[in-house]
Amino acid sequence: MVLPIVVGLGATIIALTAKATIAAYRQYLHLTPVMIATLNNIKLINLESSMSSMNKADPRYEHYRYIRSKYPNRGFTDPMTEQEALLILGIEGDDILNVNKKMIRDRYRKLMILNHPDKLGSLYLSQRINEAKDVLDKSYMVNK
Rank of each mutant, 00 (worst) to 15 (best):
Met1Ser: 13
Val2Ile: 12
Leu3Phe: 05
Ile5Trp: 04
Val6Pro: 01
Val6Ser: 11
Val6Phe: 12
Val7Trp: 05
Gly8Tyr: 08
Gly10Thr: 13
Gly10Gln: 07
Ala11Cys: 09
Thr12Leu: 15
Thr12Pro: 01
Ile14Gly: 05
Ala15Arg: 05
Ala15Gly: 04
Ala15Gln: 04
Leu16Lys: 10
Leu16Glu: 12
Leu16Trp: 13
Leu16His: 10
Ala18Lys: 09
Lys19Gln: 07
Lys19His: 09
Thr21Asn: 11
Ala23Asp: 10
Ala23Gln: 11
Tyr25Asp: 11
Tyr25Phe: 11
Tyr28Cys: 05
Leu31Phe: 04
Thr32His: 06
Pro33Phe: 03
Val34Ala: 15
Met35Trp: 04
Met35Lys: 15
Thr38Tyr: 11
Thr38His: 14
Asn41Arg: 10
Ile42Gln: 07
Ile45Leu: 12
Asn46His: 09
Glu48Lys: 08
Glu48Leu: 06
Ser49Lys: 11
Ser49Cys: 06
Ser49Trp: 08
Ser50Trp: 05
Ser50Asp: 10
Ser52Tyr: 03
Ser53Arg: 12
Met54Ile: 15
Asn55Asp: 15
Ala57Phe: 06
Ala57Thr: 07
Asp58Ser: 14
Asp58Arg: 03
Pro59Leu: 10
Arg60Glu: 08
Tyr61Val: 05
Tyr61Pro: 02
Glu62Thr: 08
Glu62Cys: 04
His63Arg: 10
Tyr64Ser: 12
Tyr64Gly: 03
Arg65Tyr: 13
Tyr66His: 14
Tyr66Lys: 14
Tyr66Thr: 13
Ile67Glu: 13
Ile67Asp: 06
Arg68Asn: 14
Lys70Thr: 15
Lys70Pro: 03
Arg74Phe: 10
Gly75Glu: 09
Thr77Ala: 09
Asp78Leu: 09
Asp78Lys: 12
Pro79Ser: 06
Thr81Pro: 04
Thr81Cys: 10
Glu82Trp: 07
Gln83His: 10
Gln83Met: 08
Gln83Tyr: 11
Gln83Ser: 14
Glu84Asp: 10
Leu86His: 02
Leu89Met: 02
Leu89Cys: 01
Gly90Met: 03
Gly93Thr: 05
Gly93Cys: 08
Asp95Tyr: 05
Asn98Leu: 15
Val99Ile: 15
Asn100Met: 07
Asn100Cys: 08
Lys102Tyr: 07
Lys102Asp: 15
Met103Ile: 06
Met103Asn: 02
Arg105Pro: 01
Arg107His: 08
Arg107Ala: 02
Tyr108Thr: 02
Leu111Gln: 00
Leu111Trp: 00
His116Met: 00
His116Leu: 00
Pro117Ile: 00
Asp118Phe: 00
Leu120Met: 14
Tyr124Gln: 12
Ala132Leu: 00
Asp134Met: 12
Val135Glu: 01
Val135His: 01
Leu136Glu: 00
Asp137Lys: 10
Lys138Cys: 05
Ser139Lys: 02
Ser139Leu: 02
Tyr140Trp: 14
Met141Ile: 15
Val142Ile: 15
Val142His: 04
Lys144Gly: 12
